[in-house]
Design a binder for these strands. Structure first.
Lengths: 189, 189
DNA sequence: TAGTTTGCCTAAAAGCTTTAGGCAAACGCA
DNA sequence: TGCGTTTGCCTAAAGCTTTTAGGCAAACTA
């Protein structure tokens, strides 16, 4: 009965890798147990249940992505900051599709409020400081950016843009140009 | 052994309703059988398997939404057409969250190509005729609109904008204004 | 009305989730 | 070092979902 050394943290990290391999929706307690060569019931000491595991993977991914973004955005402003943030987002979604899908998991309000999701909004708000938006419009702009990045990564990940020209990379660049233009010509009421 | 009169079509419609009630990811062949007061195995004459059921629900929702959109867009142009299309999209997502989630299901390329998804792209292309975009940029713009609508509906459905001001309705209107502005000032290379 | 089709059934196997209770490894302290 | 406690992983078991195979009777079809 050698002990493998399970911890919640190790399970969550392995769960994130599993998600990238098989898709977040196919992450299963059983499969995770198999990977640790351990009986399923053993995981239940470290994780409340399947939902809990998925939530933890989502929180982990949000955090990891926030760290990467913060790094990329540091020292940049304006369009430079916008594209740095956006590119990190998209790259993350491409290299870690399962984790990216996890960041789209519906979290209950308290969990969401305590998540790295708020760091993401704060970063977007900070990026908007490089543009001349009235304070009252910042939230709208944050929501627009969030929706677009989210949506693009999601559609691209679902294969929506593959095998059709022009290629996705080009659309992405043009969309970032467009969003930059938009923020510099933001329509006020 | 009274016959209930199952058909693939009835199953798909009931599946769509079920999705709206419990969430698309919780749609299950078992639950559907329960609702028809029929044994689970009976459904397998009408539907290949669970994945097949979900795919059919997705195709149904895409079709239904395309019909609604076509109706809304008919006879409109420019911003009028843009907002009509977008509003139908968002309303659908709010009133039919499960079906809307279904439209985000990853379809394999052939299935996607034969789906009403292509009607959606065509409608967006048609809407863009009201704006003065170079032909070569239309695809980029379609992808931007698709991403933004998709992303907004997804985040709003996940509760991302609820319980925080300004309310979602206002952001949505402002985002449509912004997209309209953007399309009228589309940055070319 | 007889024959055929087919819709729904029973049976059963296999996989995932979750809880309860047990044994032994690892830790903490004298 | 040895003893007691903690705790990590195990076995067992129940309940649910998926999926396949084979059967009977209801509903078309001639």
């Amino acid at each position: 009965m050698a002990r493998v050394g399970l911890t919640t943290d190790r399970l969550v990290r392995a769960g994130a890798e599993l998600a990238d391999e098989v898709g977040f929706e196919h992450v299963t307690v059983s499969e995770l147990a198999r990977r640790f060569d351990v009986k399923v019931a053993s995981l239940y000491s470290h994780v409340k249940n399947s939902q809990d595991l998925k939530t933890r993977i989502a929180l982990f991914a949000l955090e990891e992505l926030a760290d990467l973004s913060a790094d990329a955005v540091a020292g940049r402003a304006g369009k430079d900051a916008l594209t740095a943030y956006a590119d990190v987002y998209r790259d993350y979604a491409l290299t870690h599709p399962g984790r990216a899908a996890a960041t789209r998991l519906r979290l209950d309000p308290e969990t969401a409020a305590a998540s790295a999701g708020v760091r993401h909004s704060q970063m977007m708000r900070a990026i908007l400081r490089g543009y001349d938006l009235p304070e009252s419009d910042r939230t709208h702009a944050v929501r627009l950016l969030g929706s677009t990045f989210h949506g693009y990564a999601s559609l691209e990940g679902a294969g929506g843009f593959s095998h059709s020209s022009p290629d996705s990379e080009e659309s992405w660049r043009r969309i970032l140009d467009a969003l930059d233009t938009l923020l510099r010509n933001w329509p006020t009421r």
